[in-house]
Every structure is written in C-alpha cells, then in structure tokens.
Nucleic acid binder design. Structure first.
Lengths: 359, 359
DNA sequence: TATATTTTTGTGTACGCACACGAAAATATT
DNA sequence: AATATTTTCGTGTGCGTACACAAAAATATA
C-alpha cells in the first residue's frame, strides 16, 4: 500500500504538500500541484481510511427516537437491533448514538422523549415520525437549531428531512397484488383486513392497499375486495368467529391480505378447513408471523428488512457527519418475499447483543 | 469514548499494563489484573478498532480465482464487482487482493492461472472450484503450503475448505417448486430445460432440479416433468422451434424451469401466444434475465445475490487474517425471489467502479 | 545481608494521516 | 538594494493501540 509519505518521497516534496494537494487546500503552486497529482495517479494512491478517521477525531452524537416494542408486536425490536449494531461499529469513528424510545399509543411520551433528546444537543437526529402534528413541532425546533434529521421506516411528506430510509409502501402493496393473483387466478374475492389503527401508520397501510388494488386494475384483472377491520383491543374469539363465518359464507374468497405486521393474529384464528385453498399474505417477519409461516398458515410475508434499515440509518448518518457524504433523499429497501421455504435464509440479519465480544 | 490511556490513569497503572490485561497476556499480577478488569467494565471500555488496525499493520495478500465473464453470460461480473468493492475497503487494513480469472470452458486456463496465483505466495485463497479434478490438485498444493482456502458460489464436497459462501442449491430448487405450484396449481406438467452443460456446474443444477421435484413429492402434489436440453452452441432458431412445438403439442404444460442462469435464452424464444398462461422460473439476475423479467416474459427469478457473495468472501477472509475470526463452515445466502414488481429495489447491490472517488 | 533471578510494570516508537505553526522562497513595495 | 508582504512549503505533534525493550519491584539464592 502506497502512503502519503511514499508519494512525498517520490515527488520530492513534503507530506504536508501532498496532503494539501489531496484535499485541494490552498497554498501550493500550480506546478507542484500538477506534479504531485500525476504521481498520485501513477501510483494509484488510495487514502487509508483507518488512519484518516484516527487523525480526524471529532466527536459527534447522533440521537435516535423510535417506538419501544411490546410483547404483542415486536416489530420495532428489529430496527433497534440494527441501530445497536451500527452504534457499536461507528463508535470508533467518534460517533456516539443515544437512544430514546416512546410508547406507540401515547403521543405525550413521543414529545417528552424528544424534550430529553434535544437537551443532549445532538449533531443529527434519526426518527420514526409516528405522530404527524407533533413531528411538525419537533422538526421546527430541529431546524431552528440547524440539526439535520432523517426519517426511519415511516415516510412523512412535506418535511425537509435529509433522507428517508424505508420501503416503498405502494410498490410493496403492488407486489402483494401480483403474488395474490399468481397464486389464486382471476375473478377472485380477497379479504383485506386491518387490525390496529393509529393515525400515522395508516399512511403506510393505505399505500399498501392502494398498490394491491392497482395491480389488478392496471393489468385489467377482475377481482373483488371485502374489508374487515378489527380494533387492537378485540379478543381472538371475536376475530375467529367473524373471519370463519365470512369464509364459510363466501366461497369466492381466495385470499386474505393483512397490510400491517399483524397477519399472525388473523391466520391464527382461521380453522383448518377454511385454510385450505386460501392464500394469506402479510407484512414483516416478526416472530409471531414467522411461526405461522413455518406452520404453513401464511403463504407470503413481505419483509421490510427493518434490521438493515436501522443499521443503514446510523451508518448513513455517520458517513454524513464524518465525511460530509450526503445521503440520498430516499433510500428504498428491497421488497423481500419470504415463504416457508426460504425463511431460514432470510434471517441472516439477526444479531445478538454481544457487548463483550470485543472486550 | 474512554481509551486505554483513560483506564490507565484511573487504575493508576501504565497503558502497557492495561494492554496486557485486555489481551490476557502474561506478566501482570493477579491483584492489578482484577483491579484493571473492574475499571474496564465500570467504564464500559470498548477497543477502538480503528486504532487497533493501524497499530497492527501486518500485510496480507489474498488471491482470488474465479471465471471471467463473457458477453453471453454475465453471471460472474457481479461477484467480481463485490470482490472489487470489498478489496478497496480492506486495503486500509493491510489486506491486498490479487485477482486471477480463467476461461470457463478451458480447463487448462484454470490450472495456468492457479500457477500464477501460487507464485504470489498468498496468505489465503478464495476460489470458485469449477473443475473438480483440477481443484483437487490445486488444493493439495495449498494444503502443503498451509494456505487456507474458501469456496465461492460453487459448493464442492470432500474438501477441507475453511468456508463455503453461496446458496443452498437444493433449497433454492425446492422454493422454485413451491412458486411453480402456487402459480399453476396441481396436476401440471413442467418443462425443465438445461442450456449449458459443463461438468462442475452440473452439481448445482442437479441439486436445484432435485429440490424442485422434491417439493411436489414431499407435499404429495401430482405433477409431471419433461426434459429438454440444449447445447450452448446451438442457435436460437432451433431452440425456438423445439420449445414452441412442445408447447403447442402439450397443453398440460403450465410452467418452465431453467435451473441455470440462462432462462433468458429460452424465454426470448417463446411466441407470444404460448407465453400466456405459462410461468417461467429461472435463476440469477443477469442483465439479460432482468430485461426479460421487465417485459413480463419471466415470472420469477431466484437471485443468488452474487455481488454480496463476492463482497462477503473478501471481508470474511480479511477478518480471518486480521482478527483471527474463523468464518462459519457454510455461509448460506438468502434465496431471494425477484419479480417484475420488486426488481428495481433488489439491485441496491450494484456498485460502480469509482476508483477515484476517495482519491 | 548481598546478589542473582524472576515477575511485574513503565516507556518509547511506529502505524498513516490531519492540521497547526513556522521557515523558506518568491514577489511586491519603498 | 533593503525591507515588507505574500506565497509556498517543511516540520512536528496527536489520534489510540500494539509491541519491544527497559526499569523497577518482588522473590529466590547464596
């Protein structure tokens, strides 16, 4: 590996001069600049990123604000783990990640955690914009302070966020349309079922449903949709009765789409005989969903790769702070199709907390 | 971030002593060892990997031997790009990657390139074991010299390779069975077509076919298979005539499986009317395949994520050499399902050669 | 107790780069 | 021509760690 010192020796100048040329700093004559640049290229010089970040040694703190996860819905566990892994890795680069989490059903805790966050005076913020109105408030404070912020997983329009990291919900829904069609044929009726309903998530869910329907419309395929929505608080008995009655009564129903991460709640309630010849498609590889997938009670899961989303968010932010590399405005993640047969391999994203692994 | 120096100050010892404790080196009394360890934990000390790799500064060269890619089959372009990207990244850690490529249809070039490779006296080798007999020869030389070697993409049995990085071909084939079944229903006939036939690749292809068939057998689903094989040299006209005649004559054919990366060659030959109601499933997201997928002439592609395979291989090897972290014996990659609808997002793996991006 | 030996601990240098400071060279001003 | 000013360049230090070597302390041997 050729170093700055090597270049300096060859060019017969000092390392300082080489450094100036590399970084396009002023104070070097055109003549030597040309000479050094030539030698730089001839020797295929590549900066040693290791040494560089050692030498830079500025301190940045990045604050993260995401929902806490709960027993009945582990979705946010996975992004958190991605964030944690990335945190460990960027620590050596002088980036410290501070985590704040709020209660999904408590708007106040969202604001309260943000107050704690802003007190830290972070250099950048990553957040899941769960509540729209409150997010506007928060964002105005951030912008006043000139703190860049990035949205994670949830896409909110009309903000000046430096980046969004997540899935294209419409396209993901569109894909479920295709999968449903391929595995049921035309002229089918589909049940679309929403379990939990909170304001902000609905934007994602609506986009997914729109995409699902648009697949059939754009491809001129006949289909019918029936909606059944449940409240988060309702018990399994009610869900079971409702769904099974519907399936018994309407034999044209060939598939069920649950455009949230709660498909396990539905699939778990369907009777064995009704399950035959019915395709179930849902989102997210939560532990409950995977369990049902393994039992062949779910046909397809669309994964958001949320672990990677968290991991990438931290890394992109670190890259922005350290190397001034501005992230893309929208970083869309793969729309991964998970089945019983490939599920075991799609889980390479998992990561155990091994806080003592490297001393 | 708390450093070794900080710990030394707090513990009232020198950095040398702290270093010894951290690395469990001998020459430190039990008393101070306990004391330092306590302070290490109390302050949640984490090694600065940046500084560590700067200080280590050993030089390793890793040799890579893979097939060159050709116009008619770009498959190996993608692993190469992954390897190149990783090479750039590990360079700073003192790992230099040397690339050797051979002609897929010329066994001699495989051996000849290896001769060049071994002259470099590399610290480790990554190779695609294309020709079985020759690989045995090569491996014996490597083992005599005590050079560890890793298999990339192609799985060969009976060797003492430190790791295999690639896909579980059987499971991938099994998945195509499921997808085919879901999108055609039972009691269908399927065309299984092999385009190119060279000895070694056939192991992968055979496993895929076995998996495909086993899906139906294990799930007790009625099906029928018809085989049509073509030679690599044959022209499109012949393929077109053969395939279309078959499809015209046997209306029970509902799907075509091409268990190699050459499905585009087939799909390109099928007439419009025959394409309706036929599902095509193939492997690998080569440029030609993606083009056909976009045109809706292919239903599913199974991606090997070969870019990531190359990328991971180099990184795992670097980690092994630098930190002595032994890789898993088998690193299986996700079996990714790609359709027209999610294809655009599955390509985030691509990477342009930006050799001058970071000067 | 004095000396030799072993164990334990401290110090210094290198890794490759960024950056501050000051020296030298080139140019401008009187 | 002497001095002031600007441009150009070289030197030195620090980032956090690994490691070799030296020094000190503890222990063993005479």
């Amino acid at each position: 590996m050729v170093t700055i010192k090597d270049i300096a020796r060859i060019a017969n100048v000092s390392v300082g001069t080489v450094d100036r040329v590399i970084h396009n700093r002023q104070g070097v004559s055109e003549k030597t600049k040309v000479k050094v640049n030539k030698i730089l290229k001839e020797n295929n010089f590549k900066i040693n990123v290791i040494a560089r970040s050692l030498a830079m040694k500025k301190k940045y703190t990045v604050a993260v604000l995401i929902p806490e996860f709960r027993e009945e819905n582990l979705f946010w566990k996975s992004p958190l783990m991605g964030i944690s892994k990335a945190s460990d890795e960027v620590l050596s680069f002088g980036v410290e990640v501070e985590l704040f989490s709020f209660n999904q059903s408590d708007c106040d805790s969202y604001l309260k955690q943000f107050e704690l966050l802003i007190k830290l005076n972070p250099k950048a913020v990553i957040l899941a914009p769960f509540f729209l109105k409150e997010t506007k408030l928060m964002v105005s404070k951030l912008e006043a302070k000139g703190i860049p912020y990035m949205f994670l997983n949830l896409e909110a329009e009309g903000f000046n966020n430096c980046s969004f990291i997540g899935q294209d919900s419409y396209k993901a829904g569109y894909l479920t349309g295709k999968l449903m069609y391929l595995s049921t044929g035309d002229n089918s009726t589909y049940l679309v079922s929403i379990i939990n309903s909170n304001l902000f998530n609905n934007i994602v869910i609506e986009k997914r449903i729109k995409g699902f329907e648009d697949f059939f419309k754009k491809n001129k395929i006949k289909f019918k949709i029936r909606n059944v929505n449940f409240d988060d608080l309702e018990d399994d008995n009610l869900i079971s009765k409702t769904i099974n009655t519907l399936l018994n009564d309407d034999k044209s129903i060939k598939g069920i789409l649950v455009p949230s991460s709660r498909i396990a709640t539905i699939s778990n309630c369907i009777s064995e005989q009704n399950l035959v010849n019915i395709r179930l498609i849902g989102f997210d590889t939560t532990e409950q969903n995977i369990e049902q997938l393994r039992k062949n009670r779910i046909t397809f899961l669309i994964s958001q790769k949320s672990f990677n989303q968290g991991y990438t968010a931290v890394n992109e932010m670190a890259d922005y702070l350290i190397h001034n590399k501005v992230p893309q405005k929208k970083i869309f993640f793969p729309i991964e199709i998970v089945t019983k047969e490939n599920e075991e391999f799609s889980q390479r994203n998992k990561w155990e907390f091994n806080s003592l692994s490297n001393i």
